[in-house]
Amino acid sequence: MFGNRFLELNQQGMLQIFILIVIALVVVVTIPVLVMKVFPAADWIMRIILIFLIFTTVRGYLGSGIPTILVTGVLIYFLVIKWAYFTAAVYIAVYFLLALQVFSIIIFGIGMGMRKG
């Protein structure tokens, strides 16, 4: 089913546009990592945002208490201290591109830009 769909889209030159969309997605996801590398203040601010996000998420699951502090600490070590750039990229991809539907705007913009009519 999907194989036929891809073949059909490829015949209409859609594969190149899909590649453009993937490149746009990679660029948008890479931007926060570059900004964190170039500007140390942005690095700190993004880490603080991630800490707040993790604490709020865990408190939503477990409520206020010692287990929340412990789980938050473990998650902060792995996600904010050890793999901060990956977490920042995932945060941008998930919250801005998926939850706020920004990726739909990117697809819409590329589609209108490649329009033949």
Binding site: L9, I17, I107, F108, G111, K116, G117
Partner: peptide
């Protein structure tokens, strides 16, 4: 988080726009 909407945009809405749907 709504990834199904992204797939709908990619495979159904977007090809229509790129093909000039509704345009002159």
């Amino acid at each position: 988080l709504g990834i199904a909407g992204i797939f709908i945009d990619l495979f159904f809405v977007f090809p229509g726009f790129a093909a000039g749907a509704g345009g002159s």
